[in-house]
Write a protein that binds this DNA or RNA. Structure first.
Length: 587
RNA sequence: GCCGAUUUAGUUUAGUGGUAAAACAGAUCCUUGGUAAGGAUCAGAGGCAAGUUCAAUUCUCGCAAUCGGCACCA
């Protein structure tokens, strides 16, 4: 899908289209007042105060119709410049424009406006020359949006749309949107019986069905092996903790509202744990450590509970009960860079194994202005942030920086990916923490015999198994690579009665070679069973008839490939084993 | 949580102020087959809780869940 914001022409076109939208809305809703109408990756939107009126999805066609009418009229879009004083006068009845004007820099003495027919909007531009260039657009959705993005403010109406130069481009874009909906993990999750939900269990509490559970178990085994080889030691800890535990860590002050309500058992207060750091801190503290013991790497596949806002819950991607691929690395200050580097390398390796290419590294820094969220120690923050930056530069990894995205205890590196539908999400994370070790009074005995405080790296490679699975379902569009497929081979005897024995023999041979095979000996036409095998996206389908039985061979067809090939049973098994070994990217 | 929409069979959808149509999936039977749907029969449904009404799946209110966004995301 085109990134409209990054294309100069499309960007201008869409911005002009936003003005056209505003003009049409003004015609239909004379009370309307306008906030901002920027270009975004997916097109444009405009935030509008309709003085209590509400635009619904069903109203969009009539707005589009008005837009077409205005566009056909073909008025020029004319730029004119006025002074700040004139602007304040001209927009004196429009609180939103006044707000914009007043927030402009002192140096900005000249303010530009754009006029098209009966509509003038404050705008930096640039725009297309005339509204008649705006022919191929579509309004896509409507929603509420808080003024200035602050939930304490009034909610405005936001209308989204997109505009192209040609009808073909517009249609291609709409087709791409539809394609994205087709690979939505919620749709595939249901079709392939990967997970389910139930009102009786609750929102954001997915139940993993056998197929999904199998895939998750494979992910667990995969990352467990990798972590063991890298010196991680895995633990099990309870999924509750006392309120005091989280008061000690500081999470209680920061995230109390986002934890499930506390419960009282005997005289103790507990919460379902929202994260595992405090438990792992205590495991570290269980004995006295020498500098020689570090780094100590405590890993856990840990179930956590977070009271996510009801409107945020989404499939497997944003849930209230999740399993983190968590670990805490306890290191000396000298080891920070090296350990951090190893984590980044592990992330790169894992993404390579899964064939994931569309991701971005985000260096999440504190917002120095935000003294409330972040503990106040400039020196520590600056040192931590520059250490992460140094490692990324040394590894030659591309990344972007984001202020105000750090955890309260330290900066972090996040991996951002784009789901089929909805805003970007974080998958992997690696966080640097100087704070929690202090709060838990952790120490190690250094060379000089002095007690020192270790530094902690919090990291999760898959993030949560839930979210990673959601993302990977969408990446592979439900066609899982061989090593992850719950069923790897589906066997279809041409005639279920005549070829039953041979089919069973092959099935047993495959299973004895650790290949997950199913046998479809139902009394259905070959074409019917073939179709079902393809719809289920099973990687290999075997067709066994007279020819195969005679020569003791198998004919196989790969998912989504035309035609078949024939091999001996042994050669086929070797082919599969090789493919699993390579964990090669899904087709 | 906020704005808006939605909720009918296992799934995907249709329709109605007088308790509901279909496709696929399922069961049974027929069909005995070479690469994406052979045929017949059967069984199966209006989220929960109120109100209006002679009568509510349909209208209204509340709750829940889901969907599109916003806000949030340790």
């Amino acid at each position: 899908m085109q990134n409209i914001k990054e294309n100069e022409r499309l960007s201008m076109l869409n911005h002009s289209c936003a003005h056209l939208l505003a003009q049409a809305v003004k015609h239909l809703y004379p009370e309307a007042k306008f906030w901002v109408g920027p270009v975004i990756e997916e097109g444009f939107y405009y935030d509008i105060d309709l003085n209590g009126a509400v635009v619904k999805e069903e109203d969009l066609p009539s707005i589009e119709k008005e837009m077409k009418k205005i566009a056909k009229d073909g008025k020029k879009i004319i730029r004119h410049e006025i002074s700040k004083k004139e602007a304040l006068e001209q927009f004196k009845d429009d609180p939103y424009k006044l707000d914009l004007i007043q927030r402009m820099n002192e140096e900005e003495t000249v303010i530009s406006c754009y006029t098209q027919g009966d509509f003038t909007d404050l705008c930096r531009g640039p725009h297309v020359e005339s509204v008649k260039e705006l022919k191929h657009f579509k309004l896509l959705k409507v929603s509420g949006a808080y003024w200035k993005g602050d939930s304490n403010n009034k909610m405005l109406q936001r209308i989204y749309g997109v505009c192209f130069d040609t009808e073909e481009d517009l249609n291609a874009h709409l087709a791409a949107l539809e394609d994205a909906r087709q690979r939505d993990h919620r749709k595939i999750g249901k079709e392939q019986e990967l997970y389910m939900t139930s009102d009786l269990v609750g929102a954001g509490m997915p139940l993993w069905l056998p197929n999904g559970a199998f895939i998750r178990k494979q992910l667990e085994n995969y990352i467990y092996d990798k972590e063991r080889k890298l010196g991680y030691e895995h633990v099990y800890t309870p999924c509750v903790g006392t309120v005091d535990l989280y008061k000690t860590s500081g999470h209680w002050d920061h995230y109390q509202e986002n934890m499930f309500p506390k419960m009282t058992v005997d005289d103790e207060e507990f919460v379902l744990r929202p994260m595992n750091c405090p438990h792992h801190m205590l495991i570290y503290k269980n004995k006295l450590h020498s500098y020689r013991d570090l780094p100590i790497r405590i890993g856990e596949f840990a179930t956590d509970f977070r009271y996510e806002a009801s409107g945020a819950v989404k499939g497997l991607e944003r849930v209230r009960c999740m399993c983190q691929n968590d670990a805490h690395l306890f290191v000396t200050p000298e080891q920070i860079k090296d350990e951090f580097k190893k984590v980044v390398r592990l992330i790169l390796e894992v993404y390579q194994d899964f064939g994931i290419q569309n991701y971005k590294f985000r260096l999440s820094l504190r917002d120095p202005e935000d003294k409330e969220k972040y503990f106040d120690d400039d020196e520590m923050w600056n040192a931590a942030e520059s250490k992460l930056r140094e490692v990324l530069d040394e590894l030659g990894v591309e990344y972007f920086e984001a202020l105000g995205e750090a955890a309260f205890y330290g900066p972090k590196l996040d991996v951002e990916v784009k789901p089929a539908v909805g805003p970007d999400v974080t998958l992997s994370t690696c966080q640097l923490d100087f704070l929690l070790p202090r709060r838990f009074d952790l120490c190690y005995i250094d060379k000089d015999g002095e007690k020192k405080t270790p530094v902690v790296l919090h990291r999760a490679i898959f993030g949560t198994f839930d979210r990673f699975t959601a993302f990977f379902i969408e990446e592979c569009k439900g066609a899982f690579p061989l090593w992850l497929s719950p069923i790897q081979v589906n066997i279809i005897p041409v005639n279920p009665e005549v070829h039953a024995d041979y089919a069973k023999e092959v099935c047993e041979f495959l299973r004895s070679n650790d290949i997950r095979a199913s046998l479809d000996d139902r009394n259905e036409k070959l074409g019917y069973r073939m179709r079902e095998s393809q719809i289920k996206k099973i990687p290999y389908t075997l067709i066994l008839g007279d020819r195969e039985e005679q020569d003791h061979m198998v004919s196989y067809r790969e998912y989504h490939q035309e035609g078949t090939s024939t091999l001996s049973q042994e050669a086929f098994v070797n082919l599969l084993k090789e493919e699993v070994k390579n964990k090669r990217k899904n087709k």
